[in-house]
C-alpha cells in the first residue's frame, strides 16, 4: 500500500489542477476497491457487447442431451444445464440482457424521480402535494401488479420489463431526493445563494442537486442490483424474458427446480448477479466519495 505516499503527491498536484473532473479523478483513483469494481464493470460491458462473437457455443440452439446437468469441465467451463446447453455461453449472452435491463430501467427511473423530488422538495406546497400523491399512488400499486398490468397492456418481453422496473424506481428516487432537498434548502449556503439573488433554477441545479447526488448515486448502485433481481422475479411470474432467453434471473429461476441435484446451474447465475451487483455497489461508493465535495480523507 502506498497510502502514506499518495496524500503528499495529491496535495502537490492539487496546487496545479482544479477542474472538477480532475478533482474527481484525483479522489477516485485513490480507492483501490472502487477501481477494481470499475474495471470489472467495464469488462462486463465489453463482454456484453462482444458476447455474440466470443461465446464457444450457441447460447440458445446448441444442446447435448447426453450431458444433461453435467458439472463444469474443460469443454463446458460452467457446466451444462438441464436442457443440455452450455452455461458459460448463456452467462456471457445474459450479461447483455441483464446489464441493459438493470441499467436502463434505473437510469430512466432515477432521472424522472430526481427531477420530481427536487421540485417537490424545493417548492413544497402544491407541487409537493401533487408529486407526493403521484408517488403514493405508484407506491400503492404493488410492483408485481403494476408489471402485470404493463405487460398485459403493452405485450410481453424484456422492453416492457424495463418499463415496469423503471416506473417503480421513480417514487423511491423522488422521495429520497425530496427528503434531502428539504434538509438542504435550510442550510446556510443555500440561504446565502438565495439572498444573493440567484434564480431558483441556479439554486436547484448548482447548489441543491450536487448536495443530493451522493444519495442518488448510492441508491442508483443499489437499485441496479434490485432491478436485476426484480427482472428475475418477473421472469419467475412468466412476465419477463421468455425462454430460452439467457437472462440471468430467468436462468436462476429455471435452475431452482434442479438446485438440489445440480447446484452449479443455480450457483453460476447467482454468482454472476452477485458479482455484478457487488461491482456496482463498490463503484457507487467510490463515486460517492469522489463526488461529494464535503468528504476529505480522514
Amino acid at each position: 500500500m502506498n497510502a502514506t505516499l499518495a496524500p503528499a503527491i495529491d496535495a502537490a498536484a492539487a496546487e496545479h489542477v482544479r477542474t472538477p473532473w480532475s478533482e474527481f479523478w484525483r479522489k477516485f483513483r485513490r480507492q483501490k476497491v472502487a477501481l477494481v469494481a470499475a474495471v470489472f464493470v467495464a469488462l462486463l460491458v465489453v463482454v456484453a457487447v462482444a458476447a455474440p462473437w466470443i461465446v464457444p457455443y450457441d447460447a440458445e440452439n446448441y444442446f447435448d442431451y447426453d450431458a444433461l446437468n453435467a458439472p463444469p469441465s474443460l469443454a463446458h467451463f460452467f457446466g451444462v444445464d438441464s436442457l443440455g446447453r452450455d452455461i458459460f455461453s448463456r452467462i456471457l449472452m445474459g450479461a447483455r440482457i441483464s446489464l441493459a435491463a438493470g441499467f436502463i430501467s434505473v437510469a430512466v427511473g432515477a432521472v424522472i424521480g430526481t427531477l420530481l423530488g427536487l421540485l417537490s422538495g424545493y417548492y413544497e406546497g402544491w407541487t409537493d402535494r401533487i408529486v407526493m400523491r403521484i408517488c403514493d399512488v405508484l407506491f400503492a400499486f404493488p410492483g408485481i401488479l403494476l408489471a402485470i398490468g404493463i405487460v398485459a397492456i403493452l405485450g410481453g418481453g424484456m422492453a416492457n420489463v424495463i418499463a415496469a422496473v423503471a416506473i417503480f424506481s421513480v417514487p423511491t428516487f423522488a422521495r429520497l431526493v425530496r427528503g434531502n432537498t428539504l434538509a438542504l434548502k435550510h442550510l446556510t449556503y443555500i440561504e446565502a445563494a438565495r439572498s444573493l439573488g440567484a434564480s431558483d433554477r441556479t439554486i436547484l441545479l448548482r447548489h441543491v442537486l450536487p448536495g443530493t447526488i451522493s444519495a442518488v448515486v448510492v441508491y442508483f448502485s443499489l437499485r441496479i442490483g434490485t432491478s436485476i433481481i426484480t427482472a428475475a422475479s418477473l421472469s419467475f411470474l412468466g412476465m419477463g424474458a421468455q425462454p430460452p432467453t439467457p437472462e440471468w434471473g430467468a436462468m436462476l429461476d429455471a435452475a431452482r427446480s434442479d438446485m438440489l441435484t445440480a447446484p452449479h446451474e443455480a450457483i453460476v447465475p447467482a454468482l454472476a448477479i452477485f458479482l455484478t451487483v457487488l461491482a456496482f455497489n463498490l463503484l457507487g461508493d467510490g463515486l460517492r466519495d469522489a463526488l461529494d465535495p464535503k468528504i476529505e480523507r480522514r
Binding site: L222, G225, T226, I229, A232, F236, G249, L252, R256, M259, A266, A270, I273, F274, T276, V277, L278, N281, L282
Partner: peptide, 14 residues
C-alpha cells in the same frame, strides 16, 4: 451489506 442486497431472496430462503 453488499452480500445481503445481491443475493436473491428465494435462493437465500431455500
Amino acid at each position: 451489506a453488499v452480500s445481503g442486497i445481491s443475493f436473491p431472496a428465494f435462493a437465500l430462503g431455500m
